[in-house]
Nucleic acid binder design. Structure first.
Lengths: 149, 149
DNA sequence: TTGTAATAGTTGTTTTTGTAACTAACAAGG
DNA sequence: CCTTGTTAGTTACAAAAACAACTATTACAA
């Protein structure tokens, strides 16, 4: 019984948020409960697990996370002995971040959870839907549209 | 140069978040700059604009927003004279929320921005992609998967 | 009735996030 | 060398979100 013809449920920013939130929930519980991690932290962890040693800026560029988020995530991961930091010899502003064995163990564990979770999510979708979804999401993630007035 | 074969860029919770954030940005600037609204507030505004008078619980159920978020959003919208509250006669716990003319004007304006913005977002996508995207997102928004360990 | 549970919504407190300002180190032209 | 500008990362403070405890009201059964 809407009073006009706008469809909120199809408005992409709204729909994307709902889907993102719902689909993040179960995974969030895993890394939160098992490792006391925040969203920012598992992202940093995964980047280091996947790409090996990285600097904060590199992670920021790739994950599109603001540097303050990364700074705090790294601080917490360091306190928990999951990440070590090492100053660059040539440029002492730069820090190289690396997973400790504890961090790598957490990454390996969470990655396997992520893989199984992904499979469960995709199980609801047809192959075509999944393919189109990934392509469309990839495009939308890059979009940087002008402001509307 | 990943060190293993997990694809973070295809992991749905991650990808969805990126897409949701990127695609919300421009619209967020509109309602923030023009009306000083928060995400929670435009959502409440749109529900009232679309469905007419609603209670906080009804909005919560439909938008999957926690009741404290709604309570505070309604409070701010009321302070700005965009929403009025009226106690239910039969059940005095319940409040019926309605847009004022000022609220309705803001809704109409923002809805038209939303429509144009949606068109700009979808312009990057093929018709098939768009259709599959909406269907897939709709399913994912409903998904409530078991916790993985 | 009256006692217990449920529901609508609010308030208080703690976490997280966002934003801006900051320090430290490097770069590059004069 | 200096000055000016840039980059990497941190810190401080303000805004927003999450979570839990609360009030007020209704429902319902003993």
């Amino acid at each position: 019984m809407p009073t006009d013809n706008f469809e909120l449920e199809k408005f992409l920013p709204y729909l994307l948020n709902q889907a993102a939130e719902a689909s993040s929930l179960a995974f969030e519980r895993s890394y939160k409960a098992k490792y006391g991690m925040l969203r920012t932290e598992w992202r940093v962890l995964f980047h280091l697990g996947l790409y090996g040693s990285m600097t904060a800026s590199e992670i920021g560029g790739r994950a599109k996370m603001h540097k303050t988020k990364i700074s705090r995530a790294v601080q917490r991961l360091t306190e928990r002995r999951m990440v070590t930091r090492e100053r660059d010899i040539d440029d002492r502003r730069v820090e190289h971040l690396t997973l400790t064995s504890k961090g790598r163990a957490a990454y390996t564990d969470l990655r396997s959870i992520a893989e199984r979770y992904e499979a469960a999510l995709v199980a609801d979708l047809s192959a075509d839907e999944t393919r189109a979804l990934r392509i469309a999401l990839g495009k939308l993630a890059e979009v940087k549209p002008a402001v509307f007035t």
